[in-house]
Amino acid sequence: MTARLYIHPLTAVSGPQAVEGDAVRLAGGMVYAREFAVIVRRDGKTISREVVTPSGIDSALARLPDELGPEGERQWSGLRTAHPPMQLGSRTVRLDQPQVMGILNVTPDSFSDGGRFMDDPEEMRAHAAAMHEAGAAIIDIGGESTRPGAKAVWEGEEAQRVVPAIEHCVAMGAAVSIDTRRPAVMEAAVVAGAAIINDVSALRYDPRSLEFAAASGKPVVLMHASGNGEDLHAEPDYEAVAFDVFDFLKDARDRAVAGGIAQDRIVLDPGVGFGKSLADNLAVLNHLAMYHALGCPLLLGASRKRMIGALSNEVPAHRRTGGSLALAQLGMDAGVQLLRVHDVFETVQARNVWRGLRDAALTDFAGLVS
C-alpha cells in the first residue's frame, strides 16, 4: 500500500514574537502554530512521526521517502495558505477570521426546530432576519433533513421549500448557501440567488451535481460522510478516523478540481456527526487543524449535534448551546474559517470576544525581552 503523509499542527502560540518568529500563521487566519507532527502511515499503521517547529520543517520534509516529497511541500504550503475573501453576490466574506453561518431549515423533521420554519413563513422570515442582524455572514438554507433515519425528499418538493426562503434572505441583503445534494435543487437555488452550494455528499449523490457546480462558478462545500447513497450515515469502516477523513476530503477536493471547480472555490467540512461515533467525532475535532494542509478553507458544523447530548446527560437539542459554543471555540482555536450554527447571536458574541483576545495577544509585548 502506498505511504500517506499528514502534517498535523499540534500547538498554538499567541504570535510569532513570543517564540522568536518560529511559528506560522495558520491558513492566513488569527491562529499561529508552533509545533507540527509530520506523520507517515502505511497499511493502516503509523510508521514514522517527527515533531518539528517551522525552523526544522525543511529538514523533516527532506527525510521523507522520495515519493512523499512533493506531497509534503504541498501540505506545508496548504497550512500557510491565506485564503482570499469570498465574493457572495453583493457581500464580501473575509476568511482571515472566523465567520458565522446561520442555519435555516425549512423541513418538517429538523432535529433542532421540528419544522417551525416550514410551517410558518412569518416565523421563518423573522428568524432569518434575526440571524442576519446578529451577524451571520451567511445563511445556510436546507429543505431536506440529513439526520439519521430521515426520509428522502423529492427534488421538486425540496426546491419548493427552499426557494421562497432564499429569495427572502437575498432580498434582505444576506449571503445565502443552499444545503442540498440534488442538482435540480442547486439550480433552482442559484437562480433564486444562492451564492454557495453546500453538498453533504461531496457531490457524490448525483453524477450531475459536479457538472452543475462547476458550470455555476459558485463556491462549493464538500463534506465527509461515511455513506454516499440515500444513507449518509452508512456503517463506516475506519482504520484511523481522523486520517481517513483527511484522505476522503483530499480525494473529494481532487475530484472536484478534475471536474472543473477551481481549488480556491472549494471549502471542506469534516462532517461531524455523519457516520461517526462519539469517539470518532472527538478524534476528528481534535485533528481539525490538520485539515488546513489540504489548502482549502474549512467549515465546522457541530452545532447542537448528538455528541453534545451524549456528553451532557442526553439533553435535548434546544439545550445544547453551551456545548455548541465550546465546539465553536475549538474550531476557532484550530483556525476554522466558517462555523455553521443554530445559535447565531451567542456564537457571534463568542467569536468577537475570541477575536479581541487574539488581537490583544498579537500586540501585547509585555514580558518579552526588549
Rank of each mutant, 00 (worst) to 15 (best):
V341S: 08
V315N: 06
L298Q: 14
S90E: 09
I39S: 04
I197V: 14
I166G: 03
E157T: 13
G28L: 00
A240R: 08
D264P: 13
H83S: 04
N105D: 12
R320T: 06
L249E: 11
E239P: 00
V344A: 12
V348I: 15
S77N: 13
G149T: 12
L104I: 15
K151C: 10
L61M: 07
G367S: 02
I47F: 07
M307E: 01
P316L: 05
P85S: 15
D119L: 07
G115F: 07
T321E: 12
P85K: 14
V51G: 02
H127M: 01
G229M: 09
G301L: 02
L88A: 05
G44I: 01
G173K: 07
R204C: 11
M118F: 13
A33L: 07
V344D: 10
K276E: 04
R306T: 06
D113T: 12
R147V: 05
S177Y: 01
W76Y: 13
L282A: 06
R74D: 00
D269Q: 05
L357I: 12
L357R: 05
M131F: 11
G322Q: 10
G322S: 10
G69C: 00
G322A: 14
D231A: 12
L104Q: 15
V336P: 03
A214F: 05
E73H: 14
G229W: 10
A256H: 03
L288A: 09
M118A: 13
V245Y: 13
A33W: 03
D364E: 00
L104G: 13
N198F: 14
A150M: 06
T46V: 15
H342T: 03
F111V: 06
M30K: 09
G309R: 04
R161M: 06
D264I: 00
V353W: 06
H168E: 02
I139G: 10
S77H: 13
M101E: 09
G309F: 10
S110K: 07
G72C: 03
P270V: 02
I308H: 04
V315D: 06
G367W: 00
A62R: 02
R208Q: 12
A18I: 01
L299C: 06
E230N: 15
I39D: 01
L282G: 07
E187D: 14
L26G: 11
L268Q: 06
S77G: 13
R147Q: 06
R94K: 11
V241E: 03
R161I: 10
P316E: 11
I7G: 09
Q329T: 15
A189P: 02
V162T: 04
L294K: 00
A283S: 15
M186A: 11
A242N: 08
F111D: 00
L5G: 01
D237T: 01
G15K: 08
H233R: 06
P207V: 06
V93E: 08
A192T: 01
I178W: 02
A3K: 15
L68N: 10
V13D: 01
S110D: 04
G217L: 03
I178E: 01
P207Y: 10
